[in-house]
Computed example of a mutant assay.
Amino acid sequence: METKTSYLSDYVQQIKPSGIRKFFDLAATMEGVISLGVGEPDFVTAWNVREASILSLEQGYTAYTANAGLYELREEISRYLDQRFGLNYSPDSELIVTVGASQALDLAVRAIMNPGEEMLIPEPCFVAYESLVTLTGAKPVPIQTTAEKGFKASAADFEAALTDKTKALLLCSPSNPTGSVYSKEELESIAAFAEKHDIIVLADEIYAELTYDEPFTSMGAIRGMKERTILISGFSKAFAMTGWRLGFTAAPPVIRDAMLKIHQHAMMCAPSMAQYAALEGLKNGQEDVERMKKSYRRRRNLIVETLNEIGLGCHHPGGAFYAFPSIQSTGMSSEEFAEQLLLEEKVAVVPGNVFGPSGEGYIRCSYATSIEQIQEALVRIKRFVEKRA
């Protein structure tokens, strides 16, 4: 007897599986594939960070930590945010250590959204955003962006989508999948919109360390915005700690406390050994971050320049580790291009449409892989495109 779908939550049935995984499940069955797909650093977590985790195990630190995370780690996160981004958050009342930035985002959405309320989300966007909003019974409202405007939404774009049900907006800077970075002036304009309409801003800043051309500005650092901003960040990208599953959130005490209640019941606390590792990373890991960042910048310059030479027009990403070139000149859809490229040339990329309708006609190429792999992938992509000229 088959289990009935009527047993399932209506909200769960509305969401789709991650479109990213389809191609990588296929790629995993093939030999010789070069992956420009998964958003994961190709660097191994620094030795001193791994050693700190090993030492914590050897010393028997294997119990639960405080729900909000190790106090020493929250203190260090507070110092880090202050020194790196000019943010002032209390380790006692405004920070939570989470199981990855993804959990921080989930907590934030669940803490503030009610069924029927709306959240504005610039698109193309990370695949989980709209699903997390849908799971609360709230409505994600996509804001279409274009390459001509750097894949960034303006205050005017948000104004045009505003309704009496709008409660929040979600801004990712630097962006996944486009690598776009909002300037201080652009953030100030959006902040004025948020204050005018009493909107909460979820600021996904997981790639904040990975900006290459201009200093990064956090939404929480904009005057008057700390009180209405929920910061989402973590250690996966800049510290090459994806598998450790450790993130954090910073928010006003009332919102932070609501998030903590959900965290207490759903997760208890983040893994203690990962927390000790992150503590070491914050104290002594900035040189490693800068070394990785320097490598990413070099790779970015190579992949963007070459994609444009091939004829796949690509805007200049200011951060993260993604290029988002147009494949419209080929006459193929994003999904057709990605599938045929994988089958014919064994290069895995992500079709842009999985990041929303605004991504159709584009593909996402991660340059978080070696220069040698990128160079060979570009040779294969050029050959693939020339066949269709």
Rank of each mutant, 00 (worst) to 15 (best):
V254Q: 15
G319V: 02
E58A: 13
M273N: 09
A389K: 10
Y296Q: 01
N88C: 06
A153W: 03
L170R: 10
T62S: 14
M241S: 06
R79I: 08
L55C: 08
L279W: 01
P122D: 04
G313F: 05
S93A: 13
V127K: 07
I206F: 13
F151R: 11
G331P: 07
S102T: 10
I255L: 15
L81K: 10
K226T: 02
D92P: 07
S326K: 05
A348L: 13
H315P: 11
L107S: 01
V109N: 01
V97F: 11
L187E: 07
A191F: 01
K165Y: 12
M30E: 12
G356C: 05
L162H: 14
I371R: 12
F384S: 00
E186Q: 14
V97W: 05
S218M: 05
Y89R: 01
H197I: 06
N67Y: 11
S326H: 04
L279G: 00
R291G: 03
M332L: 15
F321I: 05
M30Y: 14
Q328L: 11
V38E: 13
G224L: 05
R297K: 13
V141D: 12
A389W: 06
V99Y: 03
T163V: 03
G243S: 13
A28D: 10
Q59S: 13
A168K: 00
I222Q: 09
L162I: 08
I206K: 02
S78M: 02
E195L: 10
A66T: 01
F43R: 11
L170G: 10
V385D: 10
E386S: 15
E118I: 04
G69Q: 13
L70Y: 05
K167I: 15
E205I: 12
D198L: 07
P124L: 12
A389G: 08
V254L: 15
I374N: 02
E51K: 12
V133Q: 04
T306F: 04
G319Y: 02
Y129T: 02
K22A: 15
K294M: 12
A203V: 01
T98C: 00
I371S: 12
A138F: 12
K152P: 03
E305G: 04
S6Q: 11
I96E: 01
V350W: 07
A238C: 07
G234S: 01
S189I: 03
A128E: 09
L132H: 08
Y207E: 09
T136Q: 05
E372H: 11
G116T: 00
S175A: 14
V304A: 03
V349G: 00
S334K: 07
E51R: 13
F321V: 03
L231C: 02
T62L: 15
F324V: 09
T98N: 00
E360A: 04
V181P: 04
G247Y: 05
G39E: 14
S183I: 04
G318W: 06
E287R: 14
S102Q: 13
L312F: 06
L55K: 13
G137R: 04
G319R: 03
P41F: 02
K165P: 09
